[in-house]
Design a protein around this nucleic acid. Structure first.
Lengths: 329, 329
DNA sequence: GGATGAAATGAAAACGTTGTCATTAAAAAT
DNA sequence: ATTTTTAATGACAACGTTTTCATTTCATCC
């Protein structure tokens, strides 16, 4: 492969000059500049990212860790983050955690030797971050920026971009109340994550605020995250004869699964049972009947991430964003 | 950062010995081995992937290029490929092409300086590969394996893992005929890709084989790829008063969009109009009414990719896989 | 006991980049 | 004409790994 040395030799200059031409930061005579450019052109030289990495001590990539890339919200985030990163010259190394703490630990360890610029964790899974203290410290020591979207991990050392669950919960409940709903079920993955807890607390406090009674039978915890979880939870509730007229679901996939169960049972949505999911627009607005969804506004999240990547000073305060309720009808 | 030099010094051996201990391929005394391991433990040494890359001339990653990571089939493939690659110690650099030829060209160029092990292109978009001949040659010269899933790019130099469109078309049409359908619409993205052409040819030849008439009004080309494309195509056809009793769609998303349009128009699926999509199971089986889908069998595709990565000899013949028809009812 | 071979280790080079320091050449000021 | 300043360039080091080649140590055999 052709390297700076070859270019330098061909152009009759030193490596340093070639480097200067490439970076364009210091003074080079126009004559030598063109000579070097010609040599580059003729030899087909392309700078090696490995050499650059060796010199700078880091690669031009970030690690993007998601719970499950198949889920709509995460793939949307991946796409938009990919675009945003591309604009500042960074590539994206994708790691799918499959909701597994073990996988997360492996990936954290792996990233230590990878010398990525940043590690962006996008997950609301209830990981035990105390078990990863040494790994996290190691990453920080290596000057790898840690960013979390999905849950507040400020304590664990992540810059956190989170959603205002309190506000979202109230917004959703208020919307359902306005529709006339009174028995609102809460459907989410088995979760003790901060985000999960907060959303559940928001559900409870919103119920209380609007004078509705809390009922354990209306809280459905699911081990499965996607469609099948929603389907099973709703089916089970119907089979048990539990009465409900609305479901607040943790993801659009859970809501869609529940919707299938309701449809199969001959119930009409949203007349008999109203549904609110969480995610983006693409799926929920083309499901029939259409779903309402609490939209996470991926572009804004990406903007915050990129901003955090740009600045060398870290503002450790969590960034809280509102969720926008997109109603179907 | 602590490097082999530090470990070597601490253990009182040479760098070479440390490297030997790490790789474990050559002879080292048990005594020195433990001494080195101790030093590694105490100093908290972790081998740098950059150093390794510099030495070997390539990084332990592959570039995965997809048309659109938000689409179900591609995110499924990404997830499973990520797992499969992980098992052979490779990371995945994700590039979302957004169906753009310009982006593809950029990424191809970028990969030249990235020194990835392989470039896996997963797209059935109608790119003009003649325009990228020099980039492709460059990548081949750099010993970067080129793999295509989604269309046969054997000519362009890619090892291709493709679907048997002919068989799939016949299977789908036969299924629809058995249901009693006679006016079968073909819905896909505007596409002159080999895969797109082949599938369309399969549609035409299957129609002919089963004695149905071909009708231009039943062929819907969409610039938009996802839900909105399917919705618009089906709505337009209905508005124009075009009669049809089945739709063969290029993706599950297009089918789902069409389904929404049909539902909005008060048509019942599959009784009034039958639908067949393409993708995996997760979405299509939780839509109501459920979709039939031609499933691409992602695990098998991944297996082929990894196999191709493992062997140093390249078998240039395209690998053709059957599509499996998953029916809803 | 000296020659032979095998096992274990060390020294050094190579990969490609960029930045520091030193040097030369040219222009400006005295 | 000599000194001072500035622009332009070159030589070389450093990053961390692996591998080749050379060397040492030790056991084995005649």
């Amino acid at each position: 492969m052709v390297s700076v040395v070859d270019v330098a030799r061909y152009a009759g200059v030193s490596q340093a000059t070639v480097s200067r031409v490439l970076s364009g930061k210091t003074f080079v005579t126009e004559a030598t500049r063109t000579r070097v450019m010609e040599a580059i052109e003729i030899l087909g030289y392309q700078p090696s990212s490995i050499g650059k990495a060796l010199r700078s001590g880091q690669i031009d990539s970030v690690a993007f860790l998601v719970s499950d890339i198949e889920q709509g919200w995460y793939s949307t985030l991946a796409k938009q983050l990919h675009t945003a990163l591309g604009e500042i010259g960074l590539d994206m190394l994708l790691f799918d955690l499959e909701h597994s703490q073990k996988r997360l630990l492996q990936v954290l360890r792996h990233c230590q030797s990878l010398h990525v610029r940043a590690l962006i964790l996008s997950s609301s899974d209830p990981f035990n971050f105390a078990d990863m203290r040494s790994e996290i410290a190691n990453l920080q020591q290596r000057n790898i920026r840690l960013i979390s979207t999905g849950q507040d991990l400020t304590e664990a050392g992540f810059v956190s971009i989170i959603h205002d669950e309190q506000q979202a919960g109230h917004q959703a409940i208020a919307h359902l109340l306005a529709r006339g709903c009174r028995k609102i079920a809460y459907l989410n993955r088995v979760s003790h994550s901060i985000a999960g807890q907060k959303r559940f607390q928001a559900y409870r406090s919103a119920l209380a605020a609007y004078g509705l009674e809390y009922d354990d039978a209306l809280v459905w915890s699911e081990p499965a995250f996607r469609f099948e979880g929603g389907y099973r939870s709703a089916s089970d509730a119907l089979a048990k004869g539990i009465k409900f007229d609305a479901i607040l679901a943790g993801t659009d996939e859970l809501a869609t699964g529940a919707l299938a169960a309701l449809t199969d049972a001959g119930l009409r949505v949203p007349d008999d049972v109203a549904l609110i999911g969480f995610g983006d627009l693409s799926l929920s607005s083309y499901i029939r009947p259409a779903l309402s969804t609490l939209s996470g506004e991926a572009p804004e999240v990406c903007r915050h991430v990129v901003e955090c990547l740009g600045h060398s000073e870290i503002d450790v305060r969590p960034i809280s964003r509102r969720l926008i309720l997109r109603t179907s009808a």
